[in-house]
Design a protein around this nucleic acid. Structure first.
Lengths: 206, 206
DNA sequence: CGGTTGGTCTAACATAGTTAGAAGAATTGC
DNA sequence: GCAATTCTTCTAACTATGTTAGACCAACCG
């Protein structure tokens, strides 16, 4: 029973250091912006010199990618935690509200996840898949609410993205746009409702 | 009649060179992205070395600012060229259509004007004022259509911005979101119409 | 205990934006 | 017409940043 060490202490230490590096990068990003991250600063914050980071990440973009993956996991977890009530308007409102809250809770994270703002950075397929999965859940949920037109989902996400991006671009920290989540949801729902009814009447929905 | 030279040839030459530099910067941006502009490349394209550009612009960001101003002037000219028909739905559609077309016609220009994507770059007040003026025209137009609720304008711009940003972020070059301009406009109009009627009935509008 | 692996370092490179200061060209003033 | 001034361009260099090469040292493994 005392044979083979079940823990790989080396790997554990390595994972801890990686997490520490990511955390330092988040801190710097929140203080100086996403683009304000420099490897020398990150390294200094974890008590290293810049080149040492390359034992843990292949490149600066690999650090961004790890941050992206972390953010995408948080987003996915939040989406999965949404508990549909069955009332379409309420569920739509909660969905858009979650999106906007997620964005305003950590603008830097939002910028990394949903805006193409780091020159030369693209998330790896694995990281991106997390974000895609969250959207797929949203799509399935809308479908469950009877909104199966793909254009409707695109329109819905565009409204959420528009409110958020306008907020950040024109009045960061304020709520001039984000306070429009409820009316925007009502607008959207009022628009898709009759179409949905028509489709159902024609036997297209289910 | 032959006294004082009415033309300042020096200034004219200077203005020409400045324009040439800006044009070279646009070319590089369209080829390699906004962030792909390097002063050495720009200089090479106009037959100079990088430091010489500093005779014409205080910094790289000053070049971005001149590009921003040029784009904002184009946008403003387009907005002013919109000729309202008086039919609200048509005018709204034309307005959003113009915005989306302007964006897709030159993504790099759109990125510079409407997204915060160049680290450390902020348009100068003079340049920004041009963009603000365009929005002011849009606001006045909506007001003329009877839509005087400020939230309505914000919602309208958010929809346009959302469709555009989703298009660029998720399917650059395609039309999955931009083709939703017409339905989105109808959705918006159907939403504000009754409210507008109510306000008018109450004597709030004019 | 000796060899291997892994982590950290210093030194250095390439590419950026930017500055200093010299050299040359164009314009202006007498 | 020439001298002084101003403008333009250049080379050289500085700083900052991502990244690589290679040495050193400690920890682990047989």
């Amino acid at each position: 029973m005392l044979d083979q060490p079940t823990r790989d202490r080396r790997a554990e230490q390595r994972a801890r250091t990686r997490a520490e590096i990511i955390e330092a990068a988040w801190e710097i990003a929140r203080e100086s912006g996403l683009a304000g991250i420099t490897l020398r600063d990150v390294a200094a914050r974890v008590g290293m010199r810049a080149p040492s980071l390359y034992s843990y990440f292949d490149s600066k973009n690999a650090i961004y990618d790890a941050m992206f993956a972390e953010g995408a996991r948080d987003f996915l977890a939040g989406v999965e935690a949404l508990t549909p009530t069955g009332d379409p308007l309420t569920d739509l409102r909660n969905g858009m509200r979650f999106y906007v809250d997620f964005a305003t809770a950590d603008p830097v994270r939002y910028q990394l996840l949903f805006q193409r703002t780091i020159p030369g950075f693209e998330p790896s397929p694995e990281s991106y898949a997390l974000a895609v999965k969250a959207l797929e859940i949203a799509r399935a949920e809308l479908s469950r609410l009877g909104i199966s037109d793909p254009g409707a989902l695109d329109l819905f996400t565009a409204i959420g993205a528009g409110l958020t991006s306008q907020q950040f671009a024109n009045e960061p920290g304020g709520d001039r746009w984000t306070r429009l989540v409820d009316p925007a949801t009502e607008m959207f729902y009022a628009y898709v409702l009759p179409r949905q009814a028509t489709r159902r009447a024609k036997g297209e929905g289910q």
